[in-house]
Amino acid sequence: MSAIDFNKILMLFESGRLEVVDLWGGSDRAFRRIFLPEGSVILLFQRQTVKLLRYFELLKSLSEQSIPVPKIFGIDAARRVMALEDAGDMSLYLWVNSTSDFSPYFEAVDILARIHELTAVRGASTRPFEFVDLINESHYFTRHFLVRLCEFSPDVLDYIEDEFYGIATEVAGSPRGFMHRDYQSQNILIARGKIVVIDFQSARDGFRVYDLVSLLEDPYVSIPERMKFLLIRAYLDSSALTKDEKQRIIEVYPYAALQRLMQATAAYSYLSLEKGKRWFLKFLPVAVERIRFWLDETGRFPGLARVIDESAERIKKFRL
């Protein structure tokens, strides 16, 4: 669509003459699907103009570097709105759960390897993802999953904090790159047979392995272990990392899996109890089971293992 089309879209939208469906959004942004004779378009509304302009530059920069993101049809900074290609609702999560076809994951890991090699991405956060952010995620896990949902005493942190530091130290020693930071199956869409990646607003310099486990250890989708092995190998084959760096990715993978799964478990707890989105509770048993699996694989964190075992019993009260 041209700029003239974009202005017409806004005029029709504001007149109330278009069919509109509210999609998901956050505290300072909202997505709406509008229906035109030639197809549907997504309107992104952002409360802060600076954030909207930054995201506009980010998507443009990613597109210029051949990363498959939604096309931009236009932006109006005064109205704080941007029009984007509608990539549909068929996420990788829905695809796999409806078809049992894991083949798009190979394209997803290839795209991820390319994302990790990006440099000088305009509009991305200039604050890198660091060791302290990993520790903050562990504290988030303690507050919302262990204390708020499982009703442990806040003192439980004293019992396991050294182990949190051990996990974070391993992850922080892994190869860095440009990371998406939430590269999971619901942020990867399949449109016209091709992948489109969304939700880059947290992208920044960080740990490559974090994105890889976000995709492959995602509690939304149960990927067979043999398939995970093939996908890790495909990612490493597509990567420009050195032999030693690739080996480090393999070594750190279990620790990164623990880190990301704790973050996801905390997010499910927060969204369920604080935001009323109770359907996230159904993913807790899988997330807890996978945390326990990776604790067994590392064999290093007995305190956290005992807490997770107790947590597995306590979440049964939700009848998941």
Rank of each mutant, 00 (worst) to 15 (best):
I111H: 08
I315V: 09
S61I: 10
L118C: 05
Y255Q: 00
A203D: 01
L58G: 09
E64G: 01
S2G: 14
Q247N: 15
S15P: 03
V121I: 15
A312W: 08
W294Y: 15
R306A: 13
G88V: 06
P219H: 07
P302K: 11
S15F: 02
F145M: 13
I167P: 02
W24H: 12
V50K: 14
T119Q: 15
K71G: 11
F31G: 03
S185K: 00
S222T: 11
E161Q: 05
Y268G: 03
N136S: 14
E161A: 04
S214D: 05
H116W: 11
K243L: 12
R181S: 08
D218W: 11
L84Y: 09
S202F: 10
R248Q: 15
Q247F: 09
L84H: 10
Q184F: 14
L189M: 15
V109M: 12
S269T: 10
I291C: 06
L59G: 08
Q186C: 10
A287E: 00
E310S: 10
L271G: 05
M90L: 15
R79L: 14
L118A: 04
R33D: 08
K246S: 11
S63T: 00
L295G: 00
I249A: 06
D199R: 11
D89G: 03
V50Q: 13
G88N: 10
R29W: 07
E251L: 12
S61W: 13
Q259C: 01
A257M: 05
M90Q: 12
G276R: 11
L295K: 04
N97T: 11
H144E: 07
G74C: 07
P68V: 14
V221Q: 01
V20E: 14
V96E: 09
V209T: 08
Q259H: 06
P70K: 11
I111Q: 04
Y165F: 11
V213Y: 01
R54Y: 01
A287M: 02
I198S: 06
L271F: 02
L12F: 11
A83D: 07
Y255A: 06
P68I: 12
K282L: 03
S138F: 12
A266R: 05
E310P: 01
F229L: 08
R122S: 15
Q247S: 15
E38G: 03
L94D: 13
A191S: 15
F152L: 04
E64F: 07
V213F: 06
P302D: 07
